[in-house]
Protein backbone atom coordinates (compact mmCIF):
# COMPACT_ATOMS: atom_id res chain seq x y z
CA UNK A 1 0.00 0.00 0.00
CA UNK A 2 1.17 3.48 -0.91
CA UNK A 3 2.02 5.70 2.04
CA UNK A 4 3.33 9.19 2.21
CA UNK A 5 5.14 11.03 4.97
CA UNK A 6 5.11 14.80 5.13
CA UNK A 7 6.19 17.55 7.49
CA UNK A 8 4.62 20.94 8.14
CA UNK A 9 4.43 23.76 10.65
CA UNK A 10 1.40 22.08 12.15
CA UNK A 11 -0.42 18.76 11.77
CA UNK A 12 -3.05 20.11 9.36
CA UNK A 13 -0.46 21.56 7.03
CA UNK A 14 1.50 18.30 6.99
CA UNK A 15 -1.66 16.31 6.24
CA UNK A 16 -2.59 18.69 3.41
CA UNK A 17 0.83 18.20 1.82
CA UNK A 18 0.57 14.42 2.03
CA UNK A 19 -2.97 14.42 0.60
CA UNK A 20 -1.98 16.47 -2.39
CA UNK A 21 1.08 14.28 -3.00
CA UNK A 22 -1.13 11.19 -2.95
CA UNK A 23 -3.88 12.86 -4.97
CA UNK A 24 -6.66 11.86 -2.60
CA UNK A 25 -9.18 13.73 -0.46
CA UNK A 26 -9.38 13.68 3.30
CA UNK A 27 -12.52 11.49 3.44
CA UNK A 28 -10.57 8.73 1.71
CA UNK A 29 -7.44 8.94 3.82
CA UNK A 30 -6.09 7.64 7.11
CA UNK A 31 -3.62 9.99 8.76
CA UNK A 32 -1.30 9.14 11.59
CA UNK A 33 0.69 11.75 13.52
CA UNK A 34 4.30 10.64 13.95
CA UNK A 35 5.53 13.77 15.65
CA UNK A 36 3.57 16.62 17.18
CA UNK A 37 5.07 20.01 16.45
CA UNK A 38 6.81 21.76 19.31
CA UNK A 39 7.63 25.41 19.83
CA UNK A 40 10.93 24.74 21.56
CA UNK A 41 12.33 27.17 24.11
CA UNK A 42 11.61 30.77 23.11
CA UNK A 43 10.70 29.42 19.67
CA UNK A 44 14.36 28.78 18.95
CA UNK A 45 15.91 25.83 20.66
CA UNK A 46 14.49 22.43 19.89
CA UNK A 47 11.59 23.61 17.77
CA UNK A 48 10.20 20.80 15.70
CA UNK A 49 7.87 20.46 12.72
CA UNK A 50 4.82 18.22 12.68
CA UNK A 51 5.31 14.92 10.91
CA UNK A 52 2.49 12.75 9.60
CA UNK A 53 2.02 9.54 7.65
CA UNK A 54 -0.98 9.32 5.33
CA UNK A 55 -2.35 6.42 3.32
CA UNK A 56 -5.52 5.90 1.26
CA UNK A 57 -8.33 4.37 3.31
CA UNK A 58 -9.55 2.55 0.23
CA UNK A 59 -8.78 2.25 -3.43
CA UNK A 60 -10.73 3.90 -6.23
CA UNK A 61 -12.54 0.64 -7.07
CA UNK A 62 -13.88 0.24 -3.55
CA UNK A 63 -14.92 3.88 -3.47
CA UNK A 64 -16.72 3.54 -6.82
CA UNK A 65 -18.56 0.37 -5.75
CA UNK A 66 -19.73 2.01 -2.54
CA UNK A 67 -20.76 5.27 -4.22
CA UNK A 68 -22.67 3.52 -6.99
CA UNK A 69 -24.39 1.21 -4.53
CA UNK A 70 -25.74 4.24 -2.65
CA UNK A 71 -26.70 5.96 -5.90
CA UNK A 72 -28.88 3.12 -7.17
CA UNK A 73 -30.40 2.62 -3.71
CA UNK A 74 -31.51 6.27 -3.73
CA UNK A 75 -32.96 5.60 -7.19
CA UNK A 76 -34.98 2.70 -5.72
CA UNK A 77 -33.20 0.22 -7.97
CA UNK A 78 -32.01 -3.15 -6.75
CA UNK A 79 -28.86 -4.38 -8.38
CA UNK A 80 -25.61 -6.17 -7.78
CA UNK A 81 -22.41 -4.28 -8.53
CA UNK A 82 -19.21 -5.90 -9.74
CA UNK A 83 -15.95 -4.03 -10.18
CA UNK A 84 -13.26 -4.98 -12.69
CA UNK A 85 -10.03 -3.09 -12.94
CA UNK A 86 -7.10 -3.22 -15.34
CA UNK A 87 -4.40 -0.81 -16.54
CA UNK A 88 -6.75 1.14 -18.78
CA UNK A 89 -10.11 1.12 -17.09
CA UNK A 90 -12.05 0.88 -13.89
CA UNK A 91 -15.30 -0.81 -14.80
CA UNK A 92 -18.48 -1.15 -12.76
CA UNK A 93 -21.09 -3.64 -13.95
CA UNK A 94 -24.59 -3.59 -12.56
CA UNK A 95 -26.78 -6.68 -12.72
CA UNK A 96 -30.39 -6.96 -11.65
CA UNK A 97 -33.99 -7.32 -12.72
CA UNK A 98 -35.21 -3.76 -12.84
CA UNK A 99 -32.03 -2.01 -13.91
CA UNK A 100 -33.45 -0.90 -17.28
CA UNK A 101 -34.00 2.64 -15.97
CA UNK A 102 -30.23 2.95 -15.63
CA UNK A 103 -29.79 2.44 -19.37
CA UNK A 104 -32.45 4.86 -20.62
CA UNK A 105 -33.54 5.63 -24.15
CA UNK A 106 -30.71 4.85 -26.56
CA UNK A 107 -28.38 4.51 -23.58
CA UNK A 108 -28.63 8.15 -22.60
CA UNK A 109 -28.85 7.52 -18.84
CA UNK A 110 -26.00 5.02 -18.75
CA UNK A 111 -23.71 7.39 -20.62
CA UNK A 112 -24.59 10.45 -18.48
CA UNK A 113 -24.20 8.44 -15.26
CA UNK A 114 -20.86 7.15 -16.50
CA UNK A 115 -19.77 10.74 -17.13
CA UNK A 116 -20.77 11.76 -13.57
CA UNK A 117 -18.95 8.76 -12.08
CA UNK A 118 -15.81 9.79 -13.97
CA UNK A 119 -15.97 13.34 -12.60
CA UNK A 120 -16.77 12.17 -9.05
CA UNK A 121 -14.18 9.39 -8.82
CA UNK A 122 -11.51 11.68 -10.24
CA UNK A 123 -12.35 14.34 -7.65
CA UNK A 124 -11.63 11.82 -4.91
CA UNK A 125 -8.62 10.24 -6.60
CA UNK A 126 -6.98 12.89 -8.75
CA UNK A 127 -4.14 10.52 -9.67
CA UNK A 128 -6.54 8.05 -11.28
CA UNK A 129 -5.23 7.63 -14.82
CA UNK A 130 -7.94 5.40 -16.23
CA UNK A 131 -11.47 5.74 -17.56
CA UNK A 132 -14.40 4.81 -15.37
CA UNK A 133 -16.71 2.60 -17.44
CA UNK A 134 -20.26 1.76 -16.46
CA UNK A 135 -22.15 -1.20 -17.84
CA UNK A 136 -25.63 -2.44 -17.03
CA UNK A 137 -26.64 -6.04 -17.78
CA UNK A 138 -23.98 -6.23 -20.55
CA UNK A 139 -25.74 -3.44 -22.42
CA UNK A 140 -22.53 -2.19 -23.99
CA UNK A 141 -21.56 -5.54 -25.41
CA UNK A 142 -25.05 -6.15 -26.78
CA UNK A 143 -25.16 -2.65 -28.23
CA UNK A 144 -21.80 -3.21 -29.92
CA UNK A 145 -23.10 -6.35 -31.63
CA UNK A 146 -26.29 -4.57 -32.72
CA UNK A 147 -24.37 -1.56 -34.06
CA UNK A 148 -21.87 -3.73 -35.93
CA UNK A 149 -24.73 -5.61 -37.61
CA UNK A 150 -26.49 -2.35 -38.43
CA UNK A 151 -23.30 -0.93 -39.94
CA UNK A 152 -22.83 -3.94 -42.21
CA UNK A 153 -26.47 -3.94 -43.34
CA UNK A 154 -26.38 -0.26 -44.24
CA UNK A 155 -22.99 -0.66 -45.97
CA UNK A 156 -24.42 -3.44 -48.12
CA UNK A 157 -27.33 -1.20 -49.06
CA UNK A 158 -24.96 1.67 -49.95
CA UNK A 159 -22.97 -0.72 -52.16
CA UNK A 160 -26.08 -1.97 -53.91
CA UNK A 161 -27.84 1.33 -54.43
CA UNK A 162 -24.90 3.73 -54.61
CA UNK A 163 -26.52 6.35 -52.34
CA UNK A 164 -25.15 8.01 -49.21
CA UNK A 165 -26.87 6.88 -45.98
CA UNK A 166 -26.88 8.71 -42.64
CA UNK A 167 -27.45 6.78 -39.42
CA UNK A 168 -29.34 8.13 -36.41
CA UNK A 169 -27.47 10.35 -33.89
CA UNK A 170 -25.11 8.44 -31.61
CA UNK A 171 -22.64 9.03 -28.80
CA UNK A 172 -18.91 9.26 -29.66
CA UNK A 173 -18.34 5.70 -28.35
CA UNK A 174 -21.14 4.35 -30.53
CA UNK A 175 -19.92 6.19 -33.64
CA UNK A 176 -16.50 4.74 -33.02
CA UNK A 177 -17.99 1.22 -33.11
CA UNK A 178 -19.52 1.96 -36.54
CA UNK A 179 -16.27 3.42 -37.95
CA UNK A 180 -14.29 0.41 -36.72
CA UNK A 181 -16.87 -2.06 -38.04
CA UNK A 182 -16.56 -0.62 -41.55
CA UNK A 183 -12.92 0.42 -41.75
CA UNK A 184 -12.03 -2.54 -43.98
CA UNK A 185 -15.42 -2.91 -45.63
CA UNK A 186 -14.96 -2.75 -49.42
CA UNK A 187 -16.66 -0.01 -51.43
CA UNK A 188 -17.71 2.32 -48.58
CA UNK A 189 -16.21 5.03 -46.40
CA UNK A 190 -17.55 6.50 -43.15
CA UNK A 191 -17.41 9.95 -41.56
CA UNK A 192 -19.35 11.87 -38.92
CA UNK A 193 -21.31 15.06 -39.41
CA UNK A 194 -23.46 17.44 -37.34
CA UNK A 195 -23.02 18.83 -33.85
CA UNK A 196 -23.27 16.95 -30.55
CA UNK A 197 -25.58 15.53 -29.32
CA UNK A 198 -27.01 15.05 -32.83
CA UNK A 199 -23.75 14.06 -34.50
CA UNK A 200 -24.19 11.03 -36.74
CA UNK A 201 -22.24 8.67 -38.92
CA UNK A 202 -22.61 8.87 -42.69
CA UNK A 203 -21.84 5.85 -44.85
CA UNK A 204 -20.93 6.77 -48.43
CA UNK A 205 -19.77 4.91 -51.53
CA UNK A 206 -16.11 5.36 -52.44
Amino acid sequence: MIEYEAVGRNVDEAIEKALSALGIRKDNAIAEVIEEPSQGILGLLGSREAKVRVRPARQAGAYLADYLEKTITFMNIKGKIEIQEDDEKLEADIYGEDVGALIGRRGRTISELQYLLNVITRRQFSNLNKMVILDVENYREKREITLTQLARNVARKVNNEGHVQALEPMTPQERRIIHIALQDYPGVKTYSEGEEPYRKVVIAPC
Binding site: F74, A101, R108, L113, L116
Partner: peptide, 17 residues
Protein backbone atom coordinates in the same frame (compact mmCIF):
# COMPACT_ATOMS: atom_id res chain seq x y z
CA UNK B 1 -23.78 22.92 -18.25
CA UNK B 2 -22.43 19.44 -18.93
CA UNK B 3 -22.56 18.30 -15.29
CA UNK B 4 -25.96 19.87 -14.59
CA UNK B 5 -27.31 18.07 -17.65
CA UNK B 6 -25.94 14.72 -16.42
CA UNK B 7 -27.44 15.31 -12.96
CA UNK B 8 -30.84 16.05 -14.52
CA UNK B 9 -30.68 12.90 -16.67
CA UNK B 10 -29.98 10.70 -13.62
CA UNK B 11 -32.73 12.40 -11.57
CA UNK B 12 -35.18 11.94 -14.44
CA UNK B 13 -34.30 8.26 -14.66
CA UNK B 14 -35.13 7.91 -10.98
CA UNK B 15 -38.33 9.92 -11.48
CA UNK B 16 -39.72 7.47 -14.04
CA UNK B 17 -41.27 5.56 -11.17
Amino acid sequence: GRIAKAIRTVINAAAVK
